[in-house]
Design a protein around this nucleic acid. Structure first.
Lengths: 195, 195
DNA sequence: GGGATTATGTCAGCCATGTTGACTTAATCT
DNA sequence: AGATTAAGTCAACATGGCTGACATAATCCC
């Protein structure tokens, strides 16, 4: 990176004092606008670096961040339908189709017709897919784990509340639903193509 | 969105019990791997929605998220050099050049040669640029403010520590430096070519 | 003074990943 | 049987990353 440390943007901080009235979220002991801007920037930097390690690994496989997202959710929430994934990623069917097709063609994900509704294609990570997903997740989990530790005990509840509140209210039920469901096996409970 | 609520990924949660040993960040009272995955997902969803409102506004102006990032940092940290911006955004000169040029040509940002080193181009948001930047920031600040409130008092310190720890260690000094510098005015402090 | 380095800008082209619109197929619902 | 739904696909386009090469001006250093 460049020398941002030294001089940079010469000039003092304008010492903004606004606090109660006129603040973004209305009444209550709200945070100053300057601090809110700082949190916005920290969130940007945190997310920028959160995605960096997996991005590096992905390029070795000829994949991009889009593949990571798909593989992650399929791996962690096996049996997801295509429509579920569209809702989670908030992209179009065509965008998803492109990366999903590559993941399937290259043996990272398999599909299986739904038992109750055979139009549905339930998605599962293959063993190969699980391996890649775990490899991509590893540095992110380390980063998260360290950051949680750095923030001290009791972060968990607080952070979870914060992050959940950052999600659009109308999407929160879906998100909770996704996060509480996990990983049944592909193939029927007695039949199909192993892990 | 689609019906993620209902059935979805039929099957129970595999009740993973790993805790101390072998966990991502080494020793200490670390968080279970499942919880870490949940935080990773929450971060994804939070960031997804954090960028949504400004994205909508931007499309009315024919701009994209890249323009927002540039305008934001220039507005909040007036006098930034091009090289600083490259380090912050972590993109190439050519990528930045493309969006920066549009913002300059359309009167949202102005440049000014550095006083001490006239090769440098210090960047400043024009009044028009400030207005757009504020308009884009507004929904994000509201969202943040509400989320902070939802997480309860005392979040600020904790969250700040968490987010800072999420940033690559080697970039933290730069980030702190950026965040502590703010907004001198363009035009002379005694020397150069006014706005 | 003059050559090397630095900060910035720019041209040309490539790739990943988002978008819209239209259409097909198969399965399910009414 | 007809309408609807889940999924897949084709074509075309926009944004915003990337590399490589090169130009200009200012500064640094011998």
């Amino acid at each position: 990176m460049t020398d941002l440390n030294a001089p940079l943007a010469r000039g003092g901080k304008p010492a903004e004092a606004k606090h109660g009235a006129g603040s973004p979220a209305g009444k209550g002991a709200s945070v100053s606008e300057t601090k809110l801007h700082e949190f916005a920037e920290l969130l940007f930097f945190a997310y920028r670096d959160f995605t960096r390690d997996p991005d590096t690994i992905l390029s070795d496989f000829g994949f991009g961040r889009a593949h990571h997202r798909v593989l992650h959710f399929v791996n962690r929430h096996a049996g997801l339908r295509v429509a579920d994934l569209l809702g989670i990623l908030n992209i179009t069917k065509q965008s998803l189709g492109r990366v999903l097709k590559q993941l399937i063609d290259q043996g990272y994900i398999i599909q299986q017709a739904g038992a109750s509704d055979r139009r549905e294609r339930l998605l599962f990570a293959t063993e190969r897919g699980q391996e890649l997903a775990e490899r991509l997740a590893a540095p992110q989990l380390v980063r998260l784990s360290r950051a949680l530790k750095a923030a001290g005990p009791g972060v968990e509840t607080t952070l979870r509340q914060f992050l959940e509140a950052m999600i659009n209210a109308e999407d929160r039920p879906q998100v909770s639903s996704i996060m509480s469901a996990s990983s049944p096996q592909p193939g029927r409970g007695g039949t199909g193509e192993g892990s």
